Computed example of a mutant assay.
Amino acid sequence: MDDRANEAAAGSMGPGVFAEMVAAAPVPLWVIGIDGVVAFANPAALALLGYGSAAEVIGESSHDTLHHRRPDGSDYPPQTCPILDRAGSHEAGEPEWFLTRAGQALPVTWTTRPLGSSGRRLLSFAEVSDSLAANRRRPAEEGRALRHAVDVAGVPSRRLAREAMLRRVREEFGDPDFTVAALASEFHLSVRSLQVLFAEAGISPAAEIRRVRLEFAADLLAGGSTVRHAALASGFTDPGTFARAFRRQYGEPPSNQARRTSTPQ
């Protein structure tokens, strides 16, 4: 298909053979508008990321939907994301991580290409298999690693091993260098194995670290702390990152909480 045909097909995105073909494609396909929002997502993409319908993502920021943060919980600034680079086609040099609707990190490879001269970009992606992902273990190896984690924790089950790890989160969250990778290393696990263990309880290690930090920060703010002190004391190195995470968790900026605390009742 030449560039003119590509442009015509991409411009329709409505009823017709092309739209039906894209919708039925087994490869996850995702169209990013010139303004960076999701313009189209086929069923394969929605299924892989755990969304029930396209209505949940259409019109939303593509970057924020796919990976507004990295697996360790740190922010992923959109200006550093190669997927949003509109200059030509791009391909992931190594597996990257997208976030599912449930917040789980998913290792993927991806490619992008412009859709004619419309300014929109076509993103195709696929989950990285165990045989291809350099940072994932084969199931047998992963099972041995998890059993070893149980031994290290000195407990008789995966559930209790997970609880031991959650205790470490509550003990170490104030250290800004305490990350998912650091927790995994302490228990002699890969990051992926740690995520699998946490996923059995429907949670993720990055989300748990962030949740504990934010809850501690909220307590500090309620006690009269400044926003900056609450951020640093709870393990955030950047007040801006803290403010964005706090707003996502509590629906308001931390300055509102601090203002209410400092206002005489």
Rank of each mutant, 00 (worst) to 15 (best):
3 D>K: 10
4 R>V: 08
6 N>F: 11
6 N>G: 07
8 A>V: 15
10 A>R: 03
11 G>C: 13
11 G>K: 07
11 G>L: 15
14 G>T: 15
17 V>Y: 11
18 F>C: 13
18 F>E: 13
24 A>S: 14
24 A>N: 13
26 P>E: 10
27 V>C: 09
30 W>C: 05
38 V>Q: 06
41 A>P: 06
41 A>V: 14
44 A>N: 07
44 A>G: 08
50 G>P: 01
53 S>D: 12
55 A>N: 03
60 E>S: 10
60 E>L: 10
62 S>L: 01
63 H>N: 05
64 D>P: 00
65 T>E: 03
66 L>F: 02
75 D>Y: 03
83 I>K: 02
86 R>F: 11
86 R>G: 13
86 R>Y: 09
95 P>G: 07
96 E>H: 13
96 E>K: 06
96 E>V: 12
97 W>S: 03
101 R>W: 09
105 A>H: 01
106 L>G: 03
110 W>E: 03
112 T>M: 01
117 S>K: 13
120 R>G: 09
125 F>V: 10
126 A>E: 05
128 V>M: 00
144 R>K: 13
146 L>Q: 09
149 A>D: 01
149 A>L: 05
151 D>H: 14
152 V>L: 14
153 A>P: 10
153 A>G: 14
153 A>V: 06
158 R>N: 02
158 R>T: 12
159 R>L: 15
159 R>A: 15
162 R>Y: 15
162 R>I: 01
162 R>G: 03
162 R>T: 09
163 E>S: 13
164 A>T: 15
169 V>H: 04
171 E>I: 14
177 D>G: 13
177 D>C: 08
180 V>T: 14
187 F>E: 02
189 L>G: 00
190 S>Y: 00
191 V>M: 07
192 R>H: 15
193 S>K: 05
194 L>V: 05
194 L>Y: 03
194 L>R: 02
197 L>Q: 02
199 A>S: 10
202 G>H: 09
202 G>S: 08
206 A>L: 06
209 I>Q: 04
210 R>M: 01
211 R>H: 13
213 R>F: 05
213 R>L: 05
213 R>E: 02
216 F>K: 04
222 A>D: 10
224 G>N: 05
225 S>N: 01
231 A>L: 02
237 T>W: 04
237 T>R: 12
238 D>M: 01
239 P>T: 07
240 G>E: 08
240 G>W: 05
241 T>G: 08
244 R>T: 14
244 R>L: 08
244 R>D: 05
244 R>Q: 11
245 A>K: 03
247 R>W: 06
249 Q>R: 15
252 E>W: 10
257 Q>V: 15
261 T>S: 14
263 T>V: 05
